[in-house]
Nucleic acid binder design. Structure first.
Length: 886
RNA sequence: GGGCGAUUAGCUCAGUUGGUUAGAGCGUUUGCUUUACACGCAAAAUGUCGGGGGUUCGAGUCCCUCAUCGCCCACCA
């Protein structure tokens, strides 16, 4: 059956990985389609920005999704993983603007709206979606035929429909409100797009002279340049210090305006001087104060955060930071600066622009979220949607229960243009799917929608909504969502709201929040720090399988990951280990016919080692299935790693070399079990390391050309070789003796390969009979040329002095009369004796404690008794050994 | 200010509902071309599980408290 070339000595992933992906794709293995005979399993990819390139965050995120998809596919479900990209309004617009500026020295302003948008599409066609190609390198089994983009026609329809519906429901409205303004994007932002940074700043205390010349008030501010927008000074009505000033006016420095001193609760007498300058246009609190007192709202800034004409000739056109310096300089000259304190304070930054945002008043479109949030809160409360780790639901509830109106309009061009039209003749506003047909001079809203206003529809817009497609009926709601906790508000919460509102059904059942990847020092990965490895380089060095496996293997549950490229050695060496296990098997001859299932007559003849291996395999299979069901991916990876490396390679293969050497039926049986185990291992591992497992399944002859491991059944516990615990324990006892013997050799620095003779005193006749039956195995595993079994004590007078190891099936001696260091051996045994005595004392104390006996469960007490007896036996033998050394 | 998380071997981390003498990988030390694998094999060493208190027959695990570090939200004229 095996017609393959012998496996190379070391695994080289590059060629293998490059080979399989196109084959899978061409064979349509990734395609999912409604199939009433199968259970549906679907995932939507968190759409990466169309400008994006693959980062380690994507690697983790998409590896986990791929594991889930491949797992469910092997479980026989109809799997569809919907891929696509996000148009990422502000980010893309900035990116293309930069590109045009560099390449053609042109840009937005020169090109105009229509042409600019055309150029963005052109850029997208040429450079966009790079990340989609990179995801293939990683092995992602998305249904690539279904790739979508948030600005595709269908998805844009969905956006318009949702906008119109929410407008008609009265949730979406246009209004003048205080918003976050990004001077770089020159656009409004939502609250979520503002990140607060603790930065060094100055707290300026200025004197505002009373208009009547009778003195001054001191106000404190961190933003001197906004003073041109001051329209009052507030004091607390209960503040005795200033009561007499209420209703009077101060002269606003650097201007010719007089502004009133007003009484308002907002002024906190305990803070600063108790006097607050009120700038309604540039501070949310002041805006509220302004409304209460009917104050004028004076916006002193241009969209790019330079000052405008309201700041006066000297300041007009100055950048806000330059204006700040000039303000302080002029006020200092006028003797109006009381003091300047150095402080650290939180300043809101634009997430994309990475500059301080301005809060200012402007006309924007908003969506009232209160009603939308209600069913979405309920969906998580009731458990219809589950979060993993569960604690994120607390974050979710807190945000949802205090949800604010969402500012959805952006003053950029790249995005979904808001389907609202203004009639310049009569001021009428029309909102609809298409332009109004009523007569008049209609002008469409210039603004576009927040990118997330399309992303929140992703789980159903990607399936064709608002059309009633078969995909929607079959694959919606999706099953699992895998994403980072950083977008729980931006995306996850909003998708749940949109699903409940427009589909009347939650968009997914489970949300798994991944870890955040950091470098070895715990810093976030970022381009500017230069600590963000390119996954493509990592794949070139270690292989995609190795990267996938490693990142899952090292990802702690619900915590940040400390990543470094060197850690990919874990995955790389593991792949190589598996490769060589197969290589070894291949060198023993062709694959057995029984690799899929062991026939009963063969099962009846299995050796203890073989049943031990099958038991280990079953236990691992159970653990892996449970772990995946609970999204404990790293635990599954560890389980498989340990199964392959320790149980299969270190013990089982080594043990099976004995029956394989003996040839004939023994060998046949050994090879059948090896094949059976290997094929199960390959399938168990496939979701984690898709390439190497597919390659080996073919190289070994488990699969024929045209077949794929992707659609072979995922291993389930196999009752064919139900394990007898007593037998498994005996096999473990044998391995313990092997370790004992190896230890003795190592203690005397004997080369591991040196043939020696051991003496084993068994604890009883049963143990002796079992060990004698395992003689060949023991000799092989301990590299011995002879073993003498006995029930009688070891006699140094006959065999010479010997170091020994006390094990549960017996004591193993290594007769080395001329080499033994009696003093060292005695001290080692003394140490062991002391440890045992300590343990026994503790155990006896516990067992003589009546409350322990009364309250502890029976099995715990029984175990303790058994263990104590064992330890006492071991102590007795240790004492004997000591006395035999004289 | 509110919330969440972390603190276990030199490093990075496991340790499901409390129940043997707390584990793994890397690193370190020693010895090895043994019928796959030096990307390997065999063996060894290293821990008052952050401090303190409590509950319990029994605590790395549950409760309280303190400390340090990190994240999120809110506020900061």
């Amino acid at each position: 059956m095996s017609t393959h070339e012998p496996l190379a000595r070391a695994y080289e992933p590059a060629a293998v990985e490059a080979k399989w992906f196109p084959r899978w794709e061409e064979a349509g293995n990734f395609h999912g389609a409604p199939n009433p005979d199968k259970k549906a399993y679907s995932i939507v990819i968190p759409p990466p920005n169309v400008t994006g390139i693959l980062t380690l965050g994507h690697v983790l995120n998409n590896t986990l999704q791929d594991i889930l998809c491949r797992y469910h596919r092997m479980k026989g479900e109809e799997v569809c993983w919907f891929p696509g990209t996000d148009h990422a309004g502000i980010a893309t617009e900035a990116r293309v603007e930069k590109y045009l500026r560099k390449e053609e020295n042109t840009g937005r302003d020169e090109l105009g709206r229509e042409e600019f948008i055309r150029r963005v599409w052109q850029w997208k066609g040429e450079f966009g979606g790079k990340i989609i190609r990179q995801l293939r390198t990683l092995g992602c089994s998305c249904d690539w035929e279904r790739e979508r983009f948030t600005m595709d026609e269908g998805l844009s329809n969905a956006v318009r429909k949702v906008f119109v519906e929410l407008y008609r429901k009265g949730y979406i409205y246009r209004g003048q409100r205080m918003i976050n303004w990004c001077p770089v994007a020159k656009s409004a932002l939502s609250d979520e797009e503002v990140i607060y940074k603790d930065v060094a700043g100055k707290f300026y205390h200025f004197r505002y002279p009373l208009s009547d010349g009778s003195g001054y008030l001191v106000v404190a501010t961190t933003r001197p340049e906004t003073m041109f927008g001051d329209t009052a000074v507030a004091v607390n009505p209960a503040d005795e210090r200033y009561k007499h000033l209420i209703g009077r006016t101060v002269k606003l420095p650097l201007t010719d305006r007089e502004i009133p001193i007003i009484a308002d609760e907002h002024a906190d007498p305990t803070k600063g001087t108790g006097c607050v300058k009120i700038t309604p246009a540039h501070d949310p609190n002041d805006f509220e104060v302004g409304k209460r007192h009917n104050l004028e709202v004076i916006n002193v800034m241009n969209p790019d955060a330079t000052l405008n004409s309201r700041a006066g000739e000297q300041f007009e056109g100055l950048d806000r930071f330059a204006a700040r310096e000039l303000c302080v300089k002029l006020l200092t000259e006028q003797g109006l600066v009381e003091k300047i304190e150095e402080i650290r304070h939180a300043v809101g930054y634009s997430e994309r622009g990475d500059v301080p945002i301005e809060t200012l008043v402007s006309y924007q479109w908003f969506c009232n979220m209160k009603e939308l949030a209600k069913p979405a809160i309920e969906a998580v409360k009731s458990g219809r949607i589950k979060f993993y780790p569960e604690r994120w639901s607390k974050t979710y509830f807190h945000w949802m229960e205090n949800i604010q109106d969402w500012c959805i309009s952006r003053q950029i061009w790249w995005g979904h243009r808001i389907p609202a039209w203004y009639n310049d003749d009569n001021g009428e506003v029309y909102v609809g799917l298409e332009a109004p047909t009523a007569p008049g001079r209609w002008r469409q809203e210039e603004d576009v929608l927040d990118t997330w206003f399309s992303s929140w529809l992703w789980p159903f817009s990607i399936m064709g909504w608002p059309e009633e497609t078969p995909e929607l009926r079959y694959f919606y709601p999706t099953c699992d969502l895998v994403t980072g906790p950083d977008i729980i508000f931006f995306w996850v919460a909003r998708m749940i709201m949109a699903g409940c509102e427009f589909m009347k059904e939650v968009p997914f059942r489970n949300v798994y929040f991944t870890s955040i990847i950091r470098d070895e020092q715990g810093r976030k990965l970022s381009k500017s720090l230069g600590n963000s490895p390119d996954p493509l380089d990592v794949i070139a060095t270690y292989g995609a399988d190795a990267l996938r496996f490693t990142i899952v293997y090292i990802a702690p549950v619900g915590m940040d990951i400390r990543y470094s490229n060197e850690k990919c050695e874990i995955g790389k060496t593991f792949a190589n280990k598996l490769w060589n296990a197969c290589r070894f098997r291949q060198m023993q001859g062709d694959v057995s016919a029984e690799f899929r299932e062991l026939p009963p007559e063969l099962v009846a003849k299995l050796s203890g080692d073989e049943r031990w291996m099958l038991a280990k395999l079953d236990a691992a299979i159970d653990s892996v299935n449970t772990a995946i069901a609970e999204f404990r991916f790293h635990s599954a990876a560890h389980e498989i790693y340990d199964l392959v490396w320790t149980s299969f390679c270190d013990w089982f293969i080594e043990a099976e070399k004995v029956p394989m050497r003996s040839g004939g039926a023994e060998k046949e049986r050994a090879l059948a079990v090896l094949d059976y185990a290997l094929y199960r291992i390959l399938r168990l591992l496939h979701p984690f390391m898709p390439f190497i497992t597919e390659e080996l399944a073919h190289q070994m002859g488990f699969l024929a050309d045209g077949e794929t491991i992707m659609y072979q059944p995922y291993p389930e516990r196999d009752a064919c070789a139900a394990a007898d615990p007593a037998e498994l324990d005996r096999i473990d006892g044998k391995f313990e003796l092997v370790r004992g013997g190896r230890f003795l050799k190592a203690s005397y620095n004997l080369p591991d390969g040196k043939k020696v003779r051991f003496f084993i005193k068994a604890v009883d006749a049963d143990a002796r009979a079992f060990l004698e039956s395992e003689k060949a195995s023991l000799m092989s595993l301990m590299n011995a040329e002879g073993i003498e079994f006995s029930l009688a004590d070891y006699d140094p007078a006959v065999h010479g002095a010997a170091p020994s190891q006390v094990c549960r099936l017996g004591t193993v001696y290594l007769p080395l009369a001329d080499l033994i260091d009696v003093a060292a051996e005695k001290s080692r045994l003394e140490k062991q004796k002391k440890e045992l005595e300590g343990w026994i004392a503790g155990s006896r104390a516990k067992l003589s404690n009546e409350r322990f006996l009364a309250k502890a469960p029976e099995n715990v007490v029984a175990d303790a008794r058994a263990k104590l007896a064992e330890m006492e036996e071991k102590l007795a033998r240790t004492v004997e050994l000591l006395s035999s050394l004289g």
